[in-house]
């Protein structure tokens, strides 16, 4: 689309934002279907499902950044670790 050319879209970024949008829609539907109850896991604060997703994604970003800054190994390893971490936070956080 010509009108979006200034945004300099690339496929990976488009996939990234589509996933974020899908995640938001998914979380909303899940919330409507079975509302989240705030609870306390291994994180030092009471969290709802949405809080845990936010924290998981934020820490995933930090894991990826640290990987970029500290190692020369492929970024996919960091993505893998971040994904596992996200699942751990969602389940037991």
């Amino acid at each position: 689309m010509e009108s979006l050319a200034w945004m300099a879209w690339t496929t990976p970024v488009a996939i990234f934002f589509s996933s974020v949008a899908l995640m938001l829609v998914g979380m909303t539907l899940w919330q409507i279907k079975s509302p989240s109850i705030a609870r306390r896991g291994f994180l030092p604060l009471t969290t709802t499902r949405g809080d845990r997703l936010f924290l998981g994604l934020l820490s995933a970003a930090y894991i990826n950044l640290a990987w970029t800054g500290l190692t020369d190994l492929h970024q996919w390893f960091a993505a893998g670790i971040a994904f596992v971490w996200l699942l751990v936070v969602m389940r037991w956080g």
Partner: peptide, 15 residues
Amino acid sequence: IIPLMTVVNYSVQDI
């Protein structure tokens, strides 16, 4: 949000 998306696009490209 739209400017943020643009920034993300810029961050992975050499313009």
